[in-house]
């Protein structure tokens, strides 16, 4: 699984380098404060610091994102015989599970929409694909709903975060992660934009994973469900008998 993610990253990097105009490697240097975020049972959200330096001016955009491995179904409730029932639905693939963007200037001032779309900068640039059976009108409606729900859950922060450039060279930005941040192998991408063109990019991997007892239990339940179930039954039997024994009276 890790190998697959590394392959994805390599492809992403290859795509990035293909589309770029030549710029010296030293023009953009970026790093992140932390390469592993562990979600334990008392996790209440965290912040990731992205920092770096640019050479020769320009604008900086930072994108933090992770793809959903499985397809996502958006369902819409409708009233049937007075009851609210899931009726219409649309299935999407290549959905971004978490997407945050930060920039030194408003995105629309930085580059043309085509350029932004090429690098998936901004919510409008996300390349979500509807399954073939979803018609165009439904696609628009359900995609809007998908983005709204993600925004409501804090998984697509609504406004792009602002990055300050210190002395035209140094930048730093804190990306907030909510408590229910999805797990997965994230990409933290930093772009250098000059004259409406992306001229430099750097990608850092970030792993968000569950840790602690809860995560072990979750993994156990999902990987060996039958054994988990047998142990759950044994535990219940023991608890039931023990509880009764403790309180037993003649």
């Amino acid at each position: 699984m890790i190998r697959a993610h590394l392959a994805c990253m390599a492809i992403a990097l290859a795509v990035l380098s293909l589309g770029m105009r030549p710029a010296t490697a030293q023009d953009l240097i970026a790093d992140i404060s932390n390469h592993l975020i562990s979600i334990t049972s008392d996790f209440k959200g965290t912040e990731l610091l992205v920092f770096g330096a640019i050479e020769g001016g320009g604008d900086v955009v930072v994108v933090v994102s992770v793809q959903q491995r499985d397809n996502v179904i958006v369902r819409k409730k409708d009233r049937v015989f007075g009851i609210w029932v899931n009726a219409e639905s649309a299935e999407f693939s290549n959905v971004t599970a978490f997407y945050a963007v930060a920039a030194t200037s408003p995105l629309e001032e930085l580059a043309a929409p085509e350029q932004l779309r090429l690098y998936e900068i901004g919510l409008d640039a996300l390349r979500v694909e509807a399954e073939p059976d979803v018609d165009e009108a439904a696609k628009l409606e359900f995609l809007d709903a998908l983005i709204e729900l993600k925004q409501a859950n804090g998984l697509y922060p609504v406004a792009p975060l602002h990055i300050d450039l210190v002395g035209e060279r140094l930048f730093r930005v804190k990306i907030p992660f909510p408590a229910d941040v999805p797990v997965g192998s994230y990409l933290v991408q930093s772009f250098l934009i000059r004259d409406g063109q992306v001229v430099g990019a750097q990608t850092s991997p970030l792993v968000v994973s569950k840790g602690g007892f809860g995560a072990d239990l979750y993994e156990f339940a999902n990987e060996d469900g039958a054994l988990y179930g047998i142990l759950a039954v044994l535990g219940a039997v023991m608890a039931g008998l023990l509880g009764n024994l403790m309180f037993r009276r003649p």
Binding site: Y228, G229, F247
Partner: peptide
């Protein structure tokens, strides 16, 4: 319980355990 654990992964033993503790008393 076993069939649900194996097929639907909907058995939360932490939840069941706490409810049992309360229910026994």
């Amino acid at each position: 319980t076993i069939l649900h654990s194996a097929n639907t992964q909907t058995v939360d033993v932490v939840l069941a355990g706490l409810l049992t503790l309360g229910a026994v008393i």
